[in-house]
Write a protein that binds this DNA or RNA. Structure first.
Length: 288
DNA sequence: CCTGCCGCCTGCGCGC
DNA sequence: TGCGCGCAGGCGGCAG
């Protein structure tokens, strides 16, 4: 799944493929690709045609393109399976294509599960991001990210710590994979009430969040089920270094105990029953 | 405001 | 061999 390291890998791959190029034509191959777009498909195409891409930016798992028209923003979210690839005959699940005013291949947005989206937006009034993502918190790779306010806000939360890690309005960029990885590294049970964790424990946890995502970025991200690849089509190598995600039933790499897979908020969660035991302060919810 | 939960999708792998 | 079903999950919206 594309989380922060994967989306950043994609952003870096998009830069040389898009910056300085002028859009000549946009083809919408599947209507769901634009489902978060406010205007019509025709207006979407018209707004982008003739515009030159100047920058590719990111916050959390959101990407956006900036243009020579400073009022125009094209936001992209990869969802679960979105990919940007140079247009080629063998691209599968192509949902949208951008052709440029040159002879090079265009850019295809491909998305098997169609949870991804592309849409036009404008700048938010108060923060330098598209208005549709002004509620998304800073991610740990952002130069303006500050840990102390995040720790203090986390301590006010009555939800399980894993839910807090996945809350994109608290800290952005973390998804199921890196939540499980950082909780395993920190030896914290995912259902531990966020407010029950001490400041030093939260500091350690968020340090592990930053570490594991930094290591994953250095490996080109995590390709788990073939759904995520970088813009050049390469798989990320970090899946081989995962300690928790996808390792249910396998031996804990720290203590050897068999890892357990549990249900958490309609998704899967993997932990070591010995390293991450059930805490005393559990939020009121079924522990399955 | 805070929290929990639903539904949107497709392809794969499993069991019968 | 073939079919049906469960699973994977980010996020917006909505109910309580």
């Amino acid at each position: 799944m594309p989380e922060l390291p994967e989306v950043e890998t994609v952003r870096q791959g998009l830069e040389p493929l898009t910056i300085g190029r002028t859009i000549a034509q946009v083809s919408v191959k599947h209507p769901r690709a634009l489902r978060r777009n406010a205007g019509s498909t025709a207006a979407f195409k018209k707004s982008l045609t003739g515009k030159k891409i100047q920058k590719v930016s990111r916050r959390g798992k959101y990407l956006w393109f900036e243009f020579d028209d400073s009022h125009l923003l094209l936001v992209a979210h990869l969802g679960l399976s979105g990919q940007f690839r140079p247009t080629a005959k063998n691209v599968r699940h192509e949902r949208l294509r951008i052709n440029f005013a040159d002879d090079l291949p265009g850019l295809s947005f491909c998305d098997q599960r169609t949870f991804g989206a592309l849409y036009l937006d404008e700048w938010a009034a108060t923060t330098p991001v598209p208005s549709s993502i002004s509620h998304i918190a800073l991610d740990p790779f952002d130069s303006a990210f500050e840990l102390d306010p995040v720790i203090e806000r986390t301590r006010t939360k009555q939800v399980p710590i894993k839910a807090a890690l996945l809350d994109q309005t608290l800290i952005s960029g973390v998804g199921n994979i890196y939540a499980d990885e950082s909780l395993w590294r920190s030896k914290i049970h995912p259902l531990t009430r966020a407010s029950a964790l001490s400041r030093p424990r939260l500091r350690e946890l968020f340090q592990n969040v930053n570490d594991v995502m930094s290591e994953a970025l250095g490996s080109g991200g995590t390709t788990f089920d073939g759904l995520y690849v970088s813009v050049n089509g390469e798989s990320g190598a970090f899946s081989q270094r995962l300690d928790a995600y996808g390792r249910g039933g396998q031996a804990c790499r720290r203590c050897g105990k068999k890892m357990v897979r549990e249900k958490f908020a309609n998704r899967s969660s993997v932990r070591c029953p010995k390293c991450q035991p059930v805490p005393k302060s559990m939020p009121r919810r079924r522990a399955s």
